[in-house]
Design a protein around this nucleic acid. Sequence first.
RNA 1: CGGGGCGUGGCGCAGCCUGGCAGCGCGCCUGCUUUGGGAGCAGGAAGUCGGAGGUUCAAAUCCUCUCGCCCCGACCA
Length: 507
Amino acid sequence: MSKQSKQTAISPCRADDYPEWYQQVIKASDLAERSSVRGCMVIKPWGYGLWENIMRVMDSLFKTTGVKNAYFPLFIPLSFLEKEAEHVEGFAKECAVVSHHRLEKGPEGNLVPAGPLTEPLIVRPTSETIIGDSFAKWITSYRDLPLLINQWANVVRWEMRTRIFLRTSEFLWQEGHTAHATREEAEERTRLMLDIYAQTAEEYLAMPVIKGHKTPSERFPGAVDTLSVEAMMQDYKALQSGTSHFLGQNFAKASQITYQTAAESEEYVWTTSWGSSTRLIGGVIMTHGDDNGIILPPKIAPSQVVLLPIIRKPKERDAVMHYTESLAQELKSINYHGHAIQVEIDNRDIGGARGWDWIKKGIPLRVEIGPRDIDAESVYIGRRDKDPKDRQSISRNQFVRELTTVLDDIQISLFERALALRKAHTQHIDDKRQFIDFFTPRNQEKPEIHGGFAYSHWCGAETCEAQIKNDLKVTIRCIPIEADQEKGTCIYCNQPSTQRVVYAKAY
RNA sequence: CGGGGCGUGGCGCAGCCUGGCAGCGCGCCUGCUUUGGGAGCAGGAAGUCGGAGGUUCAAAUCCUCUCGCCCCGACCA
């Protein structure tokens, strides 16, 4: 019985050791696990179901703006990457390289690579260059523009240190690539896709974000401008949750993507690229999770409801299961934001551990069904956004009737809770001393959760930015789009500034 | 790549200093008893102690080499 005295399902709790809490939550939730392959993860069915729903949401939003899906090769000739100078610089250090195409028995019976390739291939870290190669062939006339393409794929970036969902050597993502006749149109597309990321984050993941421009030092290698959406996690650190790049004509020139205008001149196209990844799942975990595990926003949860039949005596089994199955059927016919409610039935005979399993998995609603409920035509429900012990009995009819309303209510409560946290840990700071204090933990040995978002002025100099990063591990997350122009002086050097930027520690 | 730590049934660990039958908790399987909330009792399965070599009558333990992982830095969606 000692376990029953435990206060929370996840140990350590967030306040005690946030990074360890994150690992434990993932383990307890059955979302994913480390693979035997260095730096890689296995996404388990519950986690993949979550990703499928996120994909479904974004895919349909992309398509409403005219984007079509396609697929390009995993391998990119080394020479392609070399075409854009800054691009090479940015990605070269983290590329996996394929150098051979065959294995042979070695002297000790082990397999050794043989058949060296004449030109090594890299495993795509991103696909601008290989897609650019196709774009160059597909685009000849102004009538071919705009070209709006997206691909759902895996990419590989050989990171030094990895964390499940946040930074793994291989991850799943979508990358959109578009080509346009004019600069304005490409810039507009860059903004449009950023808005879709913000919409996905806020309306579906219940994760409030700030839209903004990256500073030159944080820009995508080869981009003219990088936009991002930034969310605050519960340790007050920022998570970049989607990026949209205006690439100017850099990649058009590198890949010779040209078109003929109506006036018969030959011009380079203007391109954009934009991506978001399984990292979003890490964002969901760290935005909504509590000390009992993850909490999934109903709109993207693989299942919204789990039914837990309570069978005390064998003779009750049939009646309880029948009631449970008929309720499941009824629920599955309910439309929730364009899709059927997904229902799980868990009749494992493992006592109370069953309920906790689903709490840790973050399912929005748990419904207990026992003989008493059947007699009363009722159900006993627990909401994941409330305390595990906070459950109530309501009539079956009312439950069915109000189900989508309750789910929407959970969705909204999660968003508002996250927004409140962000507000509580966001400050306008104009004093350098105060700025340093804000980002300095009181306990240097074992830093407590501290900091947040600081809206402060920046002179625009890379040296100030670098100094702050060096001194405090704080970076400029973005130059917010939706903010007033306001004159001030740089938080670090006192030089004039035209706008506040968002400073934070980041993932 | 620099600094630190760790590799022992599925998971978490003890045992190592001082060599002597491979253990504990959880999980898993079976049976009985329980059942509105993380059950109890009994029985059971599951380990070449990361790998290779060495010292020894005897190695999880000592020595050498090696591989992998985790944490802190630098790098990054």
